[in-house]
Amino acid sequence: MSARDEILSSIRRSLRVTGAEGPRRAAVEARLTGAPRGVVPARGQLDAMERIGLFKKMAESAFASVAIVRGAREVPTEAARWLRDNNLPATLRKGEDKRLADMPWGETALEMAEGASDGRDLNAVSHAFAAVAESGTLIMTSGPENPSTLNFLPDNHIVVLSAAELEGDYESVFDRLRQKYGKGEMPRTVNMITGPSRSADIAQTMLLGAHGPRKLHIVIVDEA
């Protein structure tokens, strides 16, 4: 008997079932298709404006910085300002995301590069798929638009978030993923990111900038 079959029989022996029982199959099928919600904290259930406030507060308490701009056109200027204020070089790598491509990067002095990172870039900008106010968490999806390597290899990461894509809780983001990719389907990688990289493995002292970005700057585009 194969390892797989032996393990499944061992589980069934322990549970005293055959695996063919109708009600058990129905219960599993119902959960997988219905994906019922459990306890969703009241914290995130806010109107659009308050939600931005909560997101900012939670992201900042996780040591990210947050700026709010009134339109996508203002993003390059904000990115350039943040790099300058932090004494970082005026270079920035991004993916093929159309929303980023349409922004007026040429109006800044930033030297732009495009595509996945090979580990030599200091700064990158990505567009978030969505975000969660409850914990100040960004939701990033992989693909040529926003390569996953940009989320981890550069020292400093700027993430653009559209206020309309900011949800109160994780469950609403999962619904958004299902809408875009289909029920039960996922992009290759979904990164949920809450603040810059850190470690407390040396003498239980929390330090920022372990293996991922040392700094995370979030630019919320709020057209409302």
Binding site: A116, T137, S142, R188, I193, T194, G195
Partner: peptide
């Protein structure tokens, strides 16, 4: 929601990563 709070007292750990299968057509990394 209970994991990070119980572990380190964080609201959420920094990186929660969901991986599904290998690189897709068009992907530039993974």
């Amino acid at each position: 929601r209970v994991l990070a709070r119980s572990a380190t007292g964080q609201e959420m750990s920094v990186y929660t990563t969901l991986s599904t299968g290998p690189r897709r057509p068009g992907d530039v990394d993974g």
